[in-house]
């Protein structure tokens, strides 16, 4: 297995935290992970982008050779990736912020992460909801490793974030992949 993943969002949405959590959880599961980051030149409020390669073997080349999964919390993230999405690419989006064209619908998982995180009284946790979705859809790391990564990163907010993660995981399962 070797997957190319891009995560995209606007400053403040926690896209880098999401990417690092995914990397940490996959490393916990013995996977090889490499992650590069890029930011818009604006100091605040611009886009941020993380790209990950997750593999069963050690990774030489740090860049993506194909986009297997795009996780985006902003429309811009989808629009800028359209010409890089191949027939085997999948898209995970925040439903309230990204509208997916009909041609992509069958390969998309649209999640109301913002709404879910609010309902779980963790309004900043939309990124963690998407982490749960990512885990169940891609099978790149186990639920247990996801929980461990969250516990390490947010020792003071373990329950609220694990709540978001588990709920996201269930949402992902519904899509049956």
């Amino acid at each position: 297995m070797k997957l190319g993943i891009r995560m995209y969002g606007m400053g403040g949405q926690g896209i880098m935290t999401l990417a690092k959590l995914v990397g940490e959880a996959a490393v916990e599961d013995g996977k090889f992970v490499i992650m590069t980051e890029e930011y818009s030149p604006y100091i605040t409020g611009g886009w941020s982008k993380a790209e990950l390669v997750i593999s069963d073997e050690s990774i030489d080349y740090p860049l993506l050779e194909g986009l297997d999964y795009l996780v985006t919390l902003s429309q811009e993230g989808l629009d800028t990736a359209l010409d890089q999405l191949g027939p085997r690419s999948h898209v995970i989006t925040e439903k309230s912020l990204v509208s997916v064209p009909d041609t992509l619908k069958s390969r998309s998982v649209e999640i109301p992460g913002v709404e879910i995180s609010k309902s779980l009284k963790n309004p900043k946790g939309a990124n963690i909801v998407l982490m749960g979705v990512f885990s169940s859809v891609t099978k790149t790391f186990s639920m247990e490793s996801g929980r461990r990564a969250i516990t390490k990163r947010f020792p003071k907010y373990v329950d609220a974030n694990i709540g978001c993660f588990e709920r996201g995981y269930e949402e992902g399962v519904k899509y049956g992949r």
Partner: peptide, 9 residues
Amino acid sequence: QVIGHLSET
């Protein structure tokens, strides 16, 4: 710059 900023194991 890349080695400084990329994350891996």
